[in-house]
Amino acid sequence: MKHGKYPLLAAFLLPALGLYGVFVLAPYAQAFLIAMTDASGLSNRYKFVGLDNFVALFKDEYFRNALWHNALLLVLLPAITILLGLFLASLLNVGGTSKRAVSGLRGSGFYKIIYFVPQVLSVAVIGVLWKEIYNPRSGILNSGLRAVGLDSFAGDNLGNPDMAFWLVLAVMVWANVGFYVVLFGAAMSSIPRDIYEAAALDGTSRWTTLFRITLPLVWDTVQVAWVYLAVIALDGFAIVQIMTRGGPNFSTDVAGQRMYDTAFTDSRFGMASAMGVVLFFFTLSVTLVALRLTKRERIELA
């Protein structure tokens, strides 16, 4: 392998590295530089302003409001999605009892196929779809509520500042749960069946089984899920952009939407880059904290 190693390395690595360098690494590096200027999108002239953008940013109540929504998402999205995912996956994988062995429910393959569907849809499709479902006039949410006599709940939905955030959160949960049902299901299927049989003989309840047996044994996967959902929660830009653009009255605003508007509506590129840098460090620290907090002794199944 020694002979002719470098021509291959050059031919195989340089094109990929070049493209990656220009469109991924360089923008990330430049973000830090642009963040310290007053660059605008309209002219090429700018001056160095040091950390002024960051100081202004932390005084900016709109940005703080947006970050607050990201923080809420950061707690709620992983918690709800993982709990629902674990619950459904445990029903599918350790729900049924056939003869003696504890097995998955009948038709569990079919459920998994259905649950996974939102994962293959574009965020644009999901956003537009739910916007129409929430449509006060023609959506199925309000007409469904009226049909069962809950007329008082059929309101403005995304037009109502008190409701909009929760409705967007619900969509994010809807879009992600199925994926984690499949992911947790794969982890659960590697748990030896005799553990469950022993628990069943001891008369352990479903909840105790889930929290005392299943959860510790799939903890690794839960940890990974938490990190990925945290990154999704800190983003949230695409779904918000499509469904509400941060409104009404900034009630669904997220940092990504603020950054987008600052850059491409207000043409304040320096400030928008500073927002990107702040979010970069948020994402980095949240990832590290999530990994640290969820760290546990790994249980080996020999």
Partner: peptide
């Protein structure tokens, strides 16, 4: 080089949106 590539998985694209726009 490996970690340079793999590190990119941790960060969503929207963080570098402004400079990406400028590069393009």
């Amino acid at each position: 080089i490996y970690y340079l590539f793999v590190g990119g998985m941790m960060f969503p694209v929207f963080l570098a949106l402004v400079p990406l726009f400028l590069v393009v």
